[in-house]
């Protein structure tokens, strides 16, 4: 198993009140799967994504990713796991402004990497070419369309050959036609044995995945 979640809970403390966001979530994801985690806002899917993405630690339970027990790791070790094993794709792209597409894609290689700048450059070019952006290397995000920006973000997510791609509402900021293109791109990547976890509240987007996990009120339904 690539991912094993066992009885994951997350409780936020706001003042004196404890607010449970996840109440014992258990599931597994295998290598090469394309999973959509669906739920309405407030269902706990964002919390689940933060934990899956090693951005946050659960209150209790075990999370194992690629045979590494994540719940025992400290801040720096989590950063290392994020760098090596997780590629993020965000709703609002989160590209660095006034920074070329190429450099945005190179960014994960700057951390915890011993590649020469030439190798980084080569890899970033290859990745952008693979995503059909070979003629947009030096463009700033502001000079690219929404779909192109999201493809740059996907190239950035893929550059370190991560174990999973974690896409949080990747079509939320683009029109439906571009959204379809992005989803087709994910399907295509999935065919190349890349594990993709998609977080969304839209049914027709979730339908692109091969497996659906519904979450409601912090529990899998």
């Amino acid at each position: 198993m690539l991912i094993t979640l066992n009885q994951i809970t997350k409780v936020y403390q706001i003042g004196e009140v404890d607010i449970p966001a996840l109440r014992g979530v258990t599931f597994t994801i295998d290598r090469g799967e394309f999973v959509a985690i669906m739920g309405a806002s407030g269902s706990g899917k964002t919390t689940l994504m933060n934990i899956l993405g090693c951005l946050d630690q659960p209150t209790s339970g075990q999370y194992s990713l690629d045979d590494t027990e994540i719940t025992r790791l400290n801040r720096n070790e989590l950063a290392y796991i994020r760098n090596k094993k997780i590629g993020f794709v965000f709703q609002n792209f989160n590209l660095l402004p006034r920074t070329s597409a190429l450099e945005n894609v190179e960014l994960p290689l700057f951390y915890g990497n011993r590649l020469s700048s030439r190798q980084k450059y080569q890899r970033a070019i290859e990745m952008l070419t693979r995503l059909g952006l070979a003629d947009r290397l030096e463009h700033y995000p502001s000079q690219l369309s929404g779909g192109q920006q999201q493809r740059v973000a996907i190239a950035r997510a893929l550059i370190n050959q991560p174990s999973i791609i974690l896409a949080d509402e990747p079509t939320g900021n683009v029109d439906s036609k571009t959204g379809q293109e992005i989803m087709k791109l994910f399907q295509q990547l999935n065919q190349e044995e890349i594990t993709i976890i998609l977080i969304t509240h839209e049914k027709d987007i979730a339908d692109y995945a091969r497996r659906l996990i519904h979450i409601k009120d912090g529990e899998i339904v």
Partner: peptide, 16 residues
């Protein structure tokens, strides 16, 4: 702040 968040998401440690 967003840039810092992103850098952290892609693997920057506090000391970076």
């Amino acid at each position: 702040t967003r840039e810092i968040g992103l850098r952290m998401a892609v693997g920057a440690r506090g000391k970076d």
